[in-house]
């Protein structure tokens, strides 16, 4: 390994040089369609192994699980760790209720995230406009990030009852901090020359915000949103563990309590799928809104 130079030798062969020099008078920046095709093929193959490898590994894992290899390895019973086939069975049997609960939990997560993000963004705006006092407040909001949600759950339950409201509140608090910190960073790391330009236009404070700071904060806002998708799902599900009569989290903790393991697992599977979909939607939105930003260029 030490012998390898930093730049990989991509198998330049003498043949290739001869080919190019003989074919073209000037061997610089010439596009060969044949080459492109083979290159494309090569890349396709690479991509295939890149997705196939983990996929095969995943399938093997599931098969070992199904054949109870893990069970005998770790001395587990099937009622402790249900088989994939029984999980799928439970999913199919309960598909109606799973779907409606998923909708319930998702709406808590999405609503809470919306409130939290708007609030967090508002805090960031305020903190940027009046930096001296705003930053002090921001420190407190940031410390919310480190507060365990499970400690919040009972309190929100006291405040907002055991309906949807308490989970929305939990998610709001959980997502607020990340948005406030990130948006504040985005608004304050503005290029000083761009600020000077605004100054030369005699722009008012709110105009600087409108034309410069908000736009500058957008990439940071999306970073926060992506962090918050996962956080909001966790908030909603964990919030449902204790004081709820609906939702994936409720069903999950309840099924474990009454030893219906396959049903509990199917809740997890649905929650994971919902989480991934939610994340991908936000990522897609980022692509649409941030076309101008360098992080989106290939």
């Amino acid at each position: 390994m030490e012998e390898k130079p930093v730049e990989k030798n991509m198998g330049w062969s003498d043949q290739a040089i001869v080919k190019t020099t003989s074919k073209y008078a000037k061997p610089v920046s010439k596009v060969s369609i044949d080459k492109q095709k083979s290159k494309y093929k090569h890349q396709l193959g690479k991509k295939l192994t890149q997705t196939l490898l983990p996929l095969i590994a995943g399938v093997i894992m599931i098969m070992l699980w199904e054949w109870q290899v893990f069970h005998s390895l770790f001395n587990l019973q099937t009622y402790q760790l249900p088989l994939p086939s029984t999980i799928v069975e439970a999913m199919i049997d309960n598909r109606a209720i799973l779907l409606s609960y998923a909708g319930y939990t998702m709406s808590e997560a999405v609503l809470g995230m919306l409130f939290g993000s708007v609030l967090g963004f508002g805090f960031a705006l305020t903190a940027t406009a009046w930096p001296k006092w705003g930053k002090g407040g921001l420190v407190l909001i940031a410390s919310l990030n480190a507060v365990p949600i499970v400690a919040l759950a009972p309190i929100m339950n006291l405040w907002f009852g055991d309906g949807m409201g308490s989970r929305i509140a939990i998610v709001t608090i959980m997502t607020m901090a990340a948005m406030a910190i990130n948006a504040h960073k985005g608004m304050s790391v503005v290029d000083p020359l761009a600020l000077d330009l605004m100054h030369s236009y005699a722009a008012k404070k709110h105009e600087v915000f409108r034309y410069l700071r908000v736009a500058n904060s957008l990439p940071f806002v999306f970073t926060a949103l992506k962090i918050n998708t996962t956080a909001s799902m966790i908030g909603a599900i964990v919030g449902e563990f204790f004081f709820s009569s609906k939702g994936l989290g409720y069903m999950l903790s309840n099924s474990i309590k009454v030893a219906k393991m396959p049903l509990g697992w199917s809740c997890i599977v649905v929650a994971a799928i919902a989480g991934v979909v939610f994340y991908l939607v936000v990522e897609r939105m980022e692509k649409i809104f941030l076309k101008w930003h360098s992080s989106q260029r290939i």
Binding site: A16, T20, K30, V31, S32
Partner: peptide, 13 residues
């Protein structure tokens, strides 16, 4: 000594 760089679409000597 010669050095030929190849990218996806181009070759630069």
């Amino acid at each position: 000594v010669s050095m030929l760089y190849k990218t996806d679409t181009t070759e630069v000597l």
